[in-house]
Structure formats: C-alpha cells, structure tokens
Amino acid sequence: MEQIPDVPKEKFKLIHDENNSEQEKIGTPSLTYLQDVRRRLFSNKVAVVCLTLLSIIVLISIFAPLVAPHNPNAQQVTLSNLPPKLGNLNIPGFNGYQNMGGKMVDAYKQVGAPKDSFYLLGTDYLGRDLLSRIIYGTRLSLIVAVLATLVDLIIGVPYGIVSGWKGGTTDTIMQRIVEIVSSVPNLIVVILMMIILKPGLGSIVIAIAITGWVTMARLIRAQTFQLKEQEYVLAARTLGESSTKIATKHLIPNLSSTIIIQTMFTIPNAIFFEAFLSFIGIGIPAPNASLGTLLSDGQKAFRFLPYQMWAPAIILSIIMIATNLLGDGLRDAFDPQSDD
C-alpha cells in the first residue's frame, strides 16, 4: 500500500458555486409511480366524478340491509303497481298520482294504502318496493361482476404469464386454445353454460368467467413477452431466481397497470352479461332481483307503468358509463403516453 500523504484538513476548501446549486435543487418532491398515477387520475374531472358515483353505488350495495327501506322480496298484493311517491311533497312524477283513463288519480288513495306509507320509486306488480329491489338488485349485479372479474384474474393472469414466459410450443398450444375459445361468440358459450348449469349466482359467474379470461390472458401474454426481454428480468435469471419468483416479484408488479385497466373493462362486461341473461329469463331466478330481472319485469309493464322500467335502466346505464369512463381515466393515468 502506498503511503497517503498527510494533508491537513484546513487545506481542503469547498468550492461553492451559487448558480449551480440553485439549478441542481429539486423544487418539487419526487413522486413514486403510484403517486404520479394517483395525481393524474385525480386531476381528471370526469374520472373523479365517475369514481365518486361508483363509490356511492358500491357503498349503498354493501350496506343494502341498512339502506333499503323495505324487504325487497316482501309482497303486498293490495299495494301493487303504485307509482313513485316522495312523502307528502307534491312533486310531479313523485306524488303518487297516476294517469288512469286520461285523468290523474291518486293511486295510493284508490288502493287504500295507509296514510303515511309511501314508496319512493313505487311498487311492482306484486307490491314489492321498487327502491329496495333496485338496491338489492344492484348489489347482486355487482357481486356477479366482482366475482366474475376475480375468476377472470385467477385464470387469465397465470395463463398469460405462463404462455408468454415459456414461449415456443407451449405458447403455440396455449394460444390455439385461446383462439378457439375466443372464436365462439361469448354470449353463446355463456348461454350454453347457463342451460347446463342450474340457474343461480354461481352459474352466472362461471358462465361469464369461462370466456372472459381470454382477453386478459392475451394482454398479459403480450406484455410478458416484452417484459421478459428487460434487463432486470435477465439479471434475476442470471442470479438463479426461480421462474415462479420472477413472475410474482418482477412480472406481476409490472403487469399491474394492464391488469387494473383490463379489470375496469371486464366489470361492465360482466354486468352486461348478467343483465342480458336475466333479461331473457335464464339468469338470476325469482324472487331475487338483479338489474336484469328488474329491467325485464319493467319492460313487460313499460307501456302503462313506465316508472318501473326507468329506474333500473338508469342505474344500469350509470354503472356502465361510469365504469367505462373510469377505465379510460385509469388508462390515461397509468400510461400518460396514450394521452394525446
């Protein structure tokens, strides 16, 4: 070792460049990727509105037993087909009056309903409170959507990762399967499954998920193909990391944006399928309500009692629009380059 000459401390001097240090200073706190995403999402007004709307709907669905004014399945045949009434406030459309033979009649008085009883959105043909049925129906539709999306993730993500990671023959075979599954119209598979399985919540979830995972698997595969060429994956491989560990530690975190965005498009899709199946009468069995069954019931009486159709149609449309727009917002937030 060479001897380092002993230099006294005083000889060292900090050369301070005023200008340079000003320039080098970082003015704003540095943001992590997620913080950045959140900031971009919250600066998007449309996405915030949709997020708020969806949060309210989800909260109401979760606390349905507390929020719903009546039992959704309790029948009171004497009080059937009552129009909406909001307390004793006299708001047109919500005052309990109904057009009967060209005259506006107080339908509540006619059937002899108790004075203080009112139904915010009216009652259906069996005297069940529509508001409560819509709250519970939304809850059921959302449960179907969330479960179907979960199954989607559980099948689609590992499938895509394995297919993309392995490549070669494995990939070819797996992609052939994907191609065959995706070449049958989704709805037909869903309907076939519904015919075979007993109607009910579980069957709908299975039926929707059986075709739904394909899109997810495709996207994940394409992304995995890109990711596996990255240096950090190569580094992990070189260090002898097992494939499973690379998948969970390196691939999934980097795939998360794709997964989240795709999920936001799977949810409205699942809601649509559930509503569709229930609408044609092979979905949720009676007496339980879902948005689809409510729509179907409402459609039958639409000519004379349009309010029975409006409420579920509006709620369904709001959920669909809000999830689609939020999905767009999330995509822009996660991938600012896609923004033009």
Partner: peptide, 21 residues
C-alpha cells in the same frame, strides 16, 4: 361513450316506448 355503455336492449325498449308507442 353512451353508445358503448347503454345495453342495446335498454335502448331498444326506450325507442319502442317513445318512437313507437
């Protein structure tokens, strides 16, 4: 977005009610 989001059967029923009935 409306076109993408509103299910065709909801639209069909609304059209039927207003434009036809």
């Amino acid at each position: 977005i409306l076109g993408l989001s509103i299910p065709s059967f909801v639209l069909a029923v609304l059209l039927q009610f207003y434009l036809a009935y």
